[in-house]
């Protein structure tokens, strides 16, 4: 009964909340507008924005030396999570069945497992860094911790359901994923979408000034 609710209505509600919430947040940010820049452009804002969006994937030299672990763990977690989310066979099947209607090649199961290992290691290390480092602990608010723990719980229940033989374990995973989807638009988890905008904004400002940054 509760399983049917999780698998049916709650799923549609959560995915709707997710889509509407994300659109609403992005529209809100865009509608906030920018101050008119009255200076004479010395370079292209557009190319600066595009350059910044991609160049920021490569960390600065000081970052690679001073916080190497955060960098490695960060990439382990984020790349791992994206691969898990979009290229694990059960997820591909689920998305194809529920959303897109078509599927795409998934990674082999062993890649899925290795990726999960990396993502787990990255997430745990990053969260520990967050609570143990005085600076990041002060910078973190409840939202950060809820976001981290939600992602962790979704990943953990997913890993517990790996045998794909017990419906209740799948439903637990799905339920937490739904909670995650509902929570997503109203939290810092939005950075999955807004990083493009923030980087683009910085890049455009710099590009207009003719600065290669």
């Amino acid at each position: 009964m509760i399983g049917e609710f999780i698998d049916g209505p709650l799923w549609y509600f959560s995915i709707t909340a997710f889509v509407i919430g994300v659109v609403w947040r992005i529209v809100a940010i865009v509608r906030a507008g920018l101050k008119p820049d009255l200076s004479i452009a010395r370079g292209s804002a557009g190319s600066g924005a595009v350059r910044a969006i991609f160049s920021r994937f490569v960390p600065e030299r000081t970052v690679t030396t001073r916080s190497r672990l955060q960098l490695i763990a960060g990439y382990m977690f984020h790349v791992g999570l994206l691969v898990l989310l979009f290229f694990a066979q059960p997820h591909v099947d689920f998305i194809a069945e529920r959303i897109t209607g078509f599927d795409w090649p998934a990674v082999p199961h062993w890649v899925f497992i290795v990726t999960a290992e990396f993502a787990f290691a990255g997430l745990i290390l990053l969260w520990l860094h967050r609570v143990l480092n005085p600076v990041t602990r002060l910078l973190s608010d409840l939202d950060d911790h809820i976001g981290s723990i939600l992602v962790f719980l979704v990943m953990l229940t997913g890993c517990l359901a790996l045998a794909q033989s017990h419906e209740s374990l799948r439903l637990l995973h799905l339920f937490l994923a739904e909670v995650f989807l509902i929570y997503f638009p109203f939290s810092k988890l939005m950075h999955a979408f807004t990083f493009v905008m923030s980087r683009g904004y910085t890049g455009a400002t710099m590009g207009r000034k003719g600065v290669n940054a």
Partner: peptide, 9 residues
Amino acid sequence: DGAFATRGK
């Protein structure tokens, strides 16, 4: 079954 031919049922 699963990765690295882990055991299925």
